[in-house]
């Protein structure tokens, strides 16, 4: 699976498996490697380095939209060094459409690159927010999961162990615990119908991958 022409960087393994599922469903050509960077900061650094790197042509990154403006500014400044190679300026804010910057040096190392911000390139959030949007007719189940967490968090003394930043993760895993196949990991849960693969935001992500790596919209 290594040594494809292009590279997609993700923060963690969960993203990787969700993306594999989406790629399979939307028949995205297998022209890119998926590399797990470890966290948001590492993914941003690796992304900036890989644009200059010689192993891959196009580079995409899927990031959680948890960046403060100053973090985005420094990320954006890191990208500005490449400005002469690209047709459009870099956005000054992370909010908006999924980003694809086209290179004026096609087939050289500084080829096209793209950024997808979880969950929808607009709202703040993570992979879990992306998943929560796609609950498939299990609204009651998700509502009950949410109520369960609230009840848990009201316990005195405190018995839950997760940090506030991981609350969404706890919510999604709780929701997945009560599926027909309890406790499936995200990618598999997608396939088993716990999330809706036809959701417009999944389509948007598939479309971004298609346009970035295959130069065409998703089928």
């Amino acid at each position: 699976m290594e040594n494809r022409e292009h590279l997609l960087l993700v923060e963690g393994n969960s993203e990787k498996h969700v993306l594999y599922t989406i790629c399979e469903k939307y028949e995205i050509p297998e022209v890119f490697d998926v590399e797990v960077a470890g966290n948001n900061e590492k993914a941003r650094s690796k992304f900036i380095a890989e644009i200059a790197g010689s192993k891959y042509k196009k580079v995409g990154v899927v990031l959680d939209n948890e960046l403060d403006q100053h973090v985005w500014d420094s990320f954006s400044t890191g990208l500005t060094r490449y400005a002469e190679f690209y047709e459009e300026p870099f956005p000054s804010s992370p909010l908006g459409e999924a980003l694809i910057i086209r290179s004026n040096r096609k087939n050289l190392t500084y080829d096209d690159f793209g950024i997808w911000m979880m969950p929808d390139n607009h709202s703040k959030g993570t992979l879990e927010n992306f998943l929560i949007q796609m609950k498939t007719g299990h609204d009651l189940l998700l509502d009950f999961s949410e109520k369960t967490l609230v009840a848990l968090e009201e316990q005195k003394p405190r018995i839950h162990l997760y940090k506030p930043v991981h609350r969404n993760k706890a919510l999604v895993h709780t929701y997945l615990a009560w599926q027909e196949n309890p406790g499936s990991p995200y990618g598999l849960a997608f396939k088993q119908g716990a999330f809706d693969l036809n959701h417009h935001n999944v389509k948007a992500l598939a479309d971004w991958l298609h346009r970035l790596f295959a130069d065409e919209p998703a089928a």
Binding site: K46, I48, A49, E50, S54, K55, G78
Partner: peptide, 17 residues
Amino acid sequence: MDKELLFTIAETQTEVR
């Protein structure tokens, strides 16, 4: 590849040859 970028490249072990 400027100084700062080179350092990022080294830290992320990115192939640039």
